[in-house]
């Protein structure tokens, strides 16, 4: 099986041909669902995961749009075997077009379309607030069953806002201290940004801003401390803050796992995050380190197509089964 056989836009693809069963999936959400894949650190496999999840979802007859929001280093099209895009998000941001639908490009997989990120030398890496809001509104208007946002590395305001705008917030880490450290920073900033944005009271917002400074005068070291302090200052705000924290949840995936002990990292991160932030974290599973995946990347093909019998495919399927379950359901 080669990607060339699938070159025709709109060509159908039968998952049974490569032994990709869709067992255990469903019932699926009926309304459109936006998933954002972030993690703070670059090179941990966000694009790889996004593209393969998108292929899988389209194989189970869902209309999927992937949006490359790695505005400084878009390459999602490459991992899906799409030629250099002619229309990108730059056209929307710079006002060359008004409709995000104009940027949709077909791929060789039926039901899967892509919106490429910025692709010009100037770049649009730092969007103004109004541009971000408009872009989020446009993404929300995309007609599809699933919209997958491939976020870039770092913790820019744009990246955090795209992440927060998604219904399913997926954090990808590799079992390395640097990746986990960056992921925690990403989660912390996104979490405090969400709290600040959702808190109408200027006084409460001030306390949240203070909490973001590790050397704050209140001795607040974690969101749990913040909640404690907020309750002490105003029980009403404490209740509101607690609800915000409880409603915020993340889905966690670990990539490039080489040993059993590394797969346990996911559970550990889940426990540590829940303890520190007081939020719910659902551990969705892990992708093992697999040479077949590495070779697929070099061939610019999703490993679902290039290496359908690889162990990574089994794990991806398990991850997707978990992701497609309603939030909070036992995994």
């Amino acid at each position: 099986m080669t990607f060339n056989r699938l070159k025709q836009p709109g060509a159908s693809f039968d998952p049974r041909a490569v032994n990709i069963p869709s067992r255990g999936i469903g019932p699926l959400p009926t309304a459109k669902t936006v998933w954002a894949i972030g993690g703070g650190k670059g090179g941990i496999g966000k694009t790889l995961l996004t593209s393969n999840m998108a292929v899988y979802l389209s194989w189970i007859n869902k209309r999927v749009v992937v949006v490359d929001l790695d505005l400084g280093g878009s390459n999602l099209h490459t991992s899906l075997g799409v030629e250099a895009p002619t229309k990108t998000l730059s056209d929307l941001v710079l006002g060359k077009t008004d409709r995000i639908a104009d940027l949709l490009q077909p791929t060789s997989i039926r039901g899967l379309q892509i919106i490429s990120g910025a692709f010009d030398p100037i770049g649009i890496t730092s969007l103004h607030h109004a541009q971000r809001t408009r872009l989020i509104r446009q993404i929300d208007a995309i007609d599809a069953d699933f919209v997958l946002l491939d976020l870039g590395a770092g913790t820019s305001s744009s990246t955090l806002d795209f992440f927060l705008a998604a219904e399913r917030k997926i954090i990808l880490v590799t079992p390395e201290p640097t990746s986990i450290e960056n992921a925690y920073r990403f989660i912390k900033l996104a979490f405090y940004r969400m709290l600040r944005a959702a808190t109408p009271s200027p006084e409460a917002r001030h306390l949240i801003e203070q909490a973001m400074d590790l050397k704050n005068a209140y001795g607040i070291k974690s969101p749990r401390d913040l909640l404690q302090e907020m309750r002490r200052l105003s029980p009403d705000h404490g209740v509101a803050l607690e609800k915000l924290m409880a409603d915020f949840s993340l889905s966690l995936i670990v990539n490039q796992v080489r040993a059993k002990s590394e797969s346990d990292i996911g559970k550990s991160i889940q426990l540590v995050c829940e303890r520190y932030f007081g939020m719910r974290v659902d551990y969705m599973g892990y992708l093992p380190y697999d040479t077949a995946v590495w070779q697929s990347v070099r061939r610019r093909m999703p490993f679902l197509i290039d290496a359908p019998h690889s162990i990574a495919v089994t794990h991806l399927e398990s991850i997707l089964r978990n992701l497609l379950k309603p939030a909070g359901e036992k995994r």
Partner: peptide, 9 residues
């Protein structure tokens, strides 16, 4: 020695 706790606690 857990790398999961590093940098948060």
């Amino acid at each position: 020695d857990s790398i999961a706790v590093y940098s948060l606690f």
